[in-house]
Structures are given as C-alpha cells and as structure tokens.
Lab assay of single mutants.
Amino acid sequence: MGFKLLSKLLVYLTASIMAIASPLAFSVDSSGEYPTVSEIPVGEVRLYQIADGVWSHIATQSFDGAVYPSNGLIVRDGDELLLIDTAWGAKNTAALLAEIEKQIGLPVTRAVSTHFHDDRVGGVDVLRAAGVATYASPSTRRLAEVEGNEIPTHSLEGLSSSGDAVRFGPVELFYPGAAHSTDNLIVYVPSASVLYGGCAIYELSRTSAGNVADADLAEWPTSIERIQQHYPEAQFVIPGHGLPGGLDLLKHTTNVVKAHTNRSVVE
C-alpha cells in the first residue's frame, strides 16, 4: 500500500471513529477524501466538511520552486461564519470567499490569524475590503508590521502568557507558548472536538522541520505538551499544512522538532 493511500485511509478511519463516538456532533463529509496538494491548482481553494458547521479550507501556493498546501478553518456561528487564517495570499483568499459563498452561503463576518507569517495573514486586506472584521493577538499584529505583512485590524486580548485561553464565538483560542513562531495560536472547536494546530503542528508525513527561522526550538516541545494537557479530548487535529489526523500529530511534531534540534547540535 502506497504512503499517500495509507495517509488518506488514516484520515478516513479517524473521521469514521469520530462519527461513531459522537453521532450528534459529527456529520463528516462523505463526498470524498481530504484534498491534497496535487489536486488543488494554485489560485483555487477546496472546502472539506469535518463536522456539522465545521470545515477546513485548503489552498496551495508556490514557494521556492515548489507547491505547498495550506489549511485553515471555518466555523459556523449562528447565521454567520468565523474564518481562521487566510488562504495564503490575496488571490487565494478572494477564491476562498467565493467558494464559501458557493458552498455554504453564509457571510464571513470575523477572521482570526493564528500567527504573523504570510500563509496566515496574506489576504487580510481582501477580507477587510469584503467587510470582514480581522483579528490577531497584539504580538501577531506587531510582528506582521515588522515583517511588512498585512496586519489584522483588531487585537485579541488575554493571550499574552503561555497557557492563556479565551473564548471567541464558537471557538476557544489558546496560546501554548512559542513553537513554530513566538505568537502562534491554537484554535479548538469544543462542539466538535476539532483542534486546529496551525503551523505549530505537523502532518504525519512530514519528517523535516522546514521553516524554523522564527521558531523557538527549545520551547516548542513544552508548548505541545500544554496543548495535549489542555485538549486531551480532541479527536480531529488539523495541521497548518497537509493531512489531518488525531492527537498523534502532536507527538510526531515533537519528535521531528527534537530530531532537528539534535542534528543542529551535532553539526
């Protein structure tokens, strides 16, 4: 069995187990497998329904001669939608809004960016022009300005110390501490036991640490421990890039980060 097929099978099995364990909360999309990078042309966006009122959005972007996937989250909030992270750029984010209108038909009224990198804030200006209120932590807003990236308009308070959590509509926002970046936030959907790890969490097929220019490698494993301790009931975990899975993604990420750190020390 090929690795790609095995990865998709694991996603399907995880979703099936969740649907059985929580039949009222989960209505997993039966329309197909989780979209992969090879299936999404740059400039297009796919939506994948995880649970009743919960979707991931998947886009792709060219970077350094390669094409990478990027995940975000959409959560229903009454007759409105909360968006977590842009679709990595203005063109993708405009396509995301169009796809949401086509498939869901509810307005996106608020959006949260989970850290300051372009795959999370690139497209904020498109959201703002569409009347979406954009939010991020003060740290993310400051770092985005320093980096020359787009800056969300509103500040999220109460997320300055490791372990801080605040309720934001249908989700809980959690600051686990520094990891992929010093400002990275985690998003949890309690009604569906869905954990969105953003770039602080890796997919299972990833074996290298990737972009760690703004990471705190020493603190990252401790931050992941905080996530595990705060959300032990999480059933569906979405990484910032690639295929979702279960809580095993947290341990896998820790292993990859520690291996990278150990290699760096040896070198």
Rank of each mutant, 00 (worst) to 15 (best):
E99V: 13
A218C: 15
L143M: 06
K258W: 09
E99G: 14
T222N: 13
D77W: 09
L250N: 00
V45W: 02
T36I: 05
T140D: 02
S31I: 05
G43E: 10
H230S: 11
G123F: 00
D52F: 06
P170T: 06
S31M: 15
V124P: 03
S162I: 15
D119N: 02
I58W: 06
S205K: 10
P190K: 09
H252D: 03
N149Q: 13
D52L: 06
W88R: 00
L247A: 06
S56D: 14
F236Y: 03
A133L: 06
A98V: 09
A209W: 13
L159P: 05
G163S: 14
G123W: 03
A87P: 14
S160D: 06
I201A: 12
E225G: 10
V45N: 06
L143F: 15
S7R: 07
S139M: 13
I104S: 04
T182R: 05
V265G: 13
L96Q: 03
T253V: 00
P41Y: 14
L73T: 03
A95C: 15
A21T: 05
F236G: 11
S7W: 09
Y12W: 11
G89S: 08
P244G: 14
N262T: 11
R120C: 03
G246V: 11
H230E: 09
V166H: 14
G240F: 00
I238W: 14
D79N: 05
Q235V: 08
A51Q: 08
H117F: 00
A165T: 10
L47A: 08
G210A: 13
A95W: 12
S193P: 02
D214F: 06
E101S: 08
Y188Q: 02
T60L: 07
V212R: 10
T109M: 11
H57C: 04
E80M: 14
L96D: 01
T153I: 15
S191D: 14
T134Q: 01
A192S: 11
L96G: 03
A218I: 07
L81G: 04
L195W: 00
Q61F: 05
S70V: 03
D118Q: 13
T134P: 04
I201W: 02
Y231P: 00
I84T: 05
P41S: 08
S30V: 09
L185W: 01
S205Q: 08
P69A: 08
I58D: 02
A136P: 03
K102Q: 14
L73M: 06
P244M: 14
F168S: 03
G245M: 03
H230M: 06
L97H: 04
S161M: 14
D79L: 14
A94R: 13
S22A: 09
F26Y: 05
L156R: 02
G242I: 02
S264N: 09
T86S: 15
S70Y: 03
S181M: 01
A129E: 08
R128Y: 07
P221C: 11
M18Q: 09
S160C: 15
A215P: 14
A213T: 11
S31E: 10
K8W: 12
A215M: 10
M1G: 04
Y175K: 04
R120W: 01
N184L: 02
V11T: 06
P69S: 05
Q103N: 12
I100S: 15
T254V: 09
R263Q: 10
A165P: 13
E225L: 10
S22M: 06
L249K: 01
S62H: 08
G89P: 03
Y34I: 11
A192K: 14
E80R: 13
T36H: 14
S38C: 11
V45L: 08
D29F: 12
L96I: 14
E147C: 13
D216C: 06
V124M: 09
G89T: 14
A144T: 10
P23I: 08
V112F: 04
D64C: 03
I20Y: 11
P23S: 07
I151H: 03
A200P: 06
V256N: 15
L127A: 07
L185G: 02
S162K: 14
T222M: 09
D214N: 06
S62T: 08
D64R: 09
V189G: 01
S161C: 14
G122D: 08
P221F: 11
V75S: 03
Y48A: 06
R141T: 10
R167Q: 05
E101H: 15
T140I: 03
D77K: 09
T86N: 01
A209T: 06
Q229E: 08
S62Y: 09
H115G: 00
A234Y: 03
I100K: 01
T153E: 11
F236E: 07
A259T: 07
Q49C: 06
Y196S: 03
G65L: 07
A129G: 09
V121R: 03
I84F: 04
G246C: 09
M18S: 05
I84C: 01
L81H: 01
L5A: 07
V11I: 05
G148L: 09
R167H: 04
D29E: 14
G32R: 10
P232Q: 11
I50W: 09
W88M: 01
L250I: 04
V132I: 05
D164M: 12
E225N: 15
T182Y: 04
A51P: 01
V257K: 01
G2N: 15
T140L: 02
L82R: 02
